[in-house]
């Protein structure tokens, strides 16, 4: 299996604060991989850098061998990287179906929607995230869990090869978490490479076969969850901040 994402010496400084510090890793096609670290570790910033929302201070990002460092977000999406936000973002006044439709109209989304028809494609995604019965209502009145699903649906509509999920479980009830877990697993089974963050280690432990740990912007460990969870520095990082690991 080839490398899908290659991050090298990535650094992001916000004034005096180095949010991401000389960070490097690789992801292979088809992997299901987690990024962990306590709050403020720099996970969201890493995602922002990959998806083009922030420009790195230094370092390189390659996707499928193409240098995407500093590219505009919409171009990166059209190359095949989709992401969701930790804080849910949606088009408040478009219907759920139209929310998905918009993403199905993206360059890669169109490749599918051309064959199946935009409406069919959008409906099928909405069905797969379990929101088809709410197709006509706008997201402004949805509960939090449904919004998460919608967000993932919108990301899926762009027909990504690599999906970045930023804290998809935070603030959700246990049932809601289960629903999302199933959804993510299904996507992975369909061949999408998944890169997922979480600040509570336990959430990811059973889900992913590999995690990367970071702390204060720095790379700490990389490996199977059990191994990483027992890493001394990881333990210190979490304990130091008073967070439960498992």
């Amino acid at each position: 299996m080839g490398v899908i994402l290659e991050v090298k010496n990535l650094t992001k400084k916000f004034g005096g604060l180095t949010a991401v510090n000389d960070f490097s890793f690789e992801i292979k096609r088809g992997e299901f991989i987690g990024l962990i670290g306590p709050n403020g570790a720099g996970k969201t910033t890493v995602f922002n850098l990959i998806s083009g929302f922030e420009k790195p201070s230094s370092g390189r990002i390659r996707f499928n061998g193409i240098d995407i460092t500093g590219m505009k977000p919409y171009k990166i999406v059209n190359l095949g990287i989709a992401r969701t936000f930790q804080l849910v973002r949606s088009f408040k006044y478009l219907s759920l179906l139209d929310n998905i439709t918009v993403s199905c109209l993206s360059k890669r989304g169109k490749e599918v929607s051309k064959k199946t028809g935009t409406d069919n494609y959008a409906s099928s995604i909405l069905a797969s995230v379990g929101l088809i019965d709410k197709a006509r209502i706008p997201p402004i009145i949805l509960p939090h869990g449904d919004l998460r699903k919608l967000q993932i649906g919108k990301a899926v509509g762009t027909n990504p090869e690599l999906l970045l999920l930023d804290e998809p479980f935070s603030g959700l009830s246990f049932e809601e978490q289960l629903g999302i877990t199933d959804l993510i697993k299904k996507l992975h089974a369909d061949g999408v490479t998944i890169f997922i963050t979480g600040h509570v280690l336990r959430e990811l432990m059973t889900l992913v076969p590999r995690v990367i740990a970071m702390h204060q912007g720095k790379f700490i460990a990389d490996g199977p969850p059990v191994q990483v969870a027992n890493n001394k520095i990881v333990l210190e990082a979490y304990l130091g901040r008073g967070v439960k690991i498992a």
Binding site: V77, A82, F85, K92, L94, L105, S106, K154
Partner: peptide, 24 residues
């Protein structure tokens, strides 16, 4: 229309629209 929906998407959340592959 499709363009109309994209226009509304950009209007409602320009960054999120970028994430949908829309060139705002």
């Amino acid at each position: 229309s499709k363009l109309g929906k994209s226009i509304r998407a950009v209007s409602q959340d320009r960054e999120a629209a970028g994430l949908m592959g829309i060139n705002a």
